[in-house]
């Protein structure tokens, strides 16, 4: 964040611009992505880029572009694109991955203890250029030396965009996408290729890529018996009715103990009553189940 942006948000120059706060609340209401005060500077920059494009000078004017002017839906999508741009990289959400490793995987193992087949199925819905499913594959490969010994696992990676999928299948990544990779993972699971890194076949073996439109109700019903769904910064582009349909599919396709993970600042508030928000160490997730009755004791 630039110094100017930071000062505009929290500094001695004044409280956050109320119109920027209105844009923040609009983005949360429509897309479910929340910018806490500490991240308003990021929103300031992202709106700034769109405002330059639209030749608007104030947040108030830009708020109108997003709410009352013609093409407001297109402008909102353009802003959401700015908000999520550059979000994809390997090991992007460390806290979420640690929670998966330390808490979610043991919970799933326990839930499936009595089943004859030891298999874990993960769905990366909206996998973009493949960083997320490959990260999950590496995480599970590591765990297959420990808790997941004798288990098989598969990662279903789907996206709407053919070009993203082609990139994902190719498995070649530049420095930006691999910036969070530790030396350990870099050396163990990648091979250098010029200035880029190629994912090794052992990581790719467990990942299957396919094109899927999350609005395609017929095909969505085929993604059965899933233990975890990862759907980061994808639902933000859907209107409420479509979002609810997609969430219903996730609900139906997840096993009873299943987990749904969204982006780190993404929420399902007001979208579903069927998933319950749970707090994991340093992360949040959604689990299946009726909303708990007030007064029910913690187990």
């Amino acid at each position: 964040m630039s110094a100017t942006a930071a000062q505009a948000v929290i500094g001695f120059e004044g409280p956050p611009d109320p119109d920027l706060v209105r844009i923040r609340d609009l983005v949360y209401q429509v897309a479910g992505i929340f910018h806490p005060d500490s991240k308003l500077g990021l929103l300031w920059e992202r709106c700034g880029r769109r405002m330059k494009e639209r030749k608007t000078k104030t947040f108030r004017e830009y708020f109108e572009c997003l709410t009352v002017k013609p093409n407001r839906r297109a402008e909102l999508l353009a802003l959401l694109n700015e908000i999520t741009i550059g979000e994809t990289c390997f090991f992007r959400n460390q806290a979420q991955l640690h929670a998966v490793r330390d808490l979610v995987i043991p919970t799933i193992i326990e839930a499936k203890a009595k089943l004859p087949i030891r298999r874990m199925r993960i769905w990366s819905a909206g996998c973009s250029t493949g960083e997320e499913p490959y990260t999950l594959s590496m995480l599970l490969l590591e765990e297959s030396q420990r808790r997941l010994r004798d288990w098989t696992f598969e990662i279903l990676a789907t996206d709407l965009n053919e070009r993203s999928l082609a990139h994902a299948k190719n498995g070649l990544y530049g420095s930006y996408g691999t910036r969070n990779l530790s030396a350990y993972y870099r050396e163990k699971y990648f091979s250098p290729e010029g200035e880029q890194l190629r994912v090794q076949p052992v990581v790719q073996r467990n990942v299957s890529f396919s094109r899927l439109n999350l609005s395609d109700d017929a095909r969505m019903t085929f993604m059965k018996s899933v233990d975890m769904v990862f759907c980061c910064n994808v639902l933000i582009y859907f209107d409420l009715a479509s979002k609810r349909r997609v969430i219903q599919h996730f609900y139906n396709n997840l096993l009873p103990h299943g987990y749904l993970f969204l982006g780190p600042s993404e929420s399902l508030y007001g979208v579903t009553e069927e998933f319950r928000l749970v707090h994991l160490p340093g992360a949040t997730a959604y689990v299946k189940g009726e909303r708990s009755l007030a007064g029910k004791k913690a187990s």
């Binding site: 808490l103 707090h279 994991l280 160490p281 340093g282 708990s292 004791k297 913690a298």
Partner: peptide, 22 residues
Amino acid sequence: MSGLNYGYLENRQVNVLEQPGF
């Protein structure tokens, strides 16, 4: 359960709606 902890994260799953305080 977040970054304002005692220097470590408790390894558990919490549903706020199931807490007595709720």
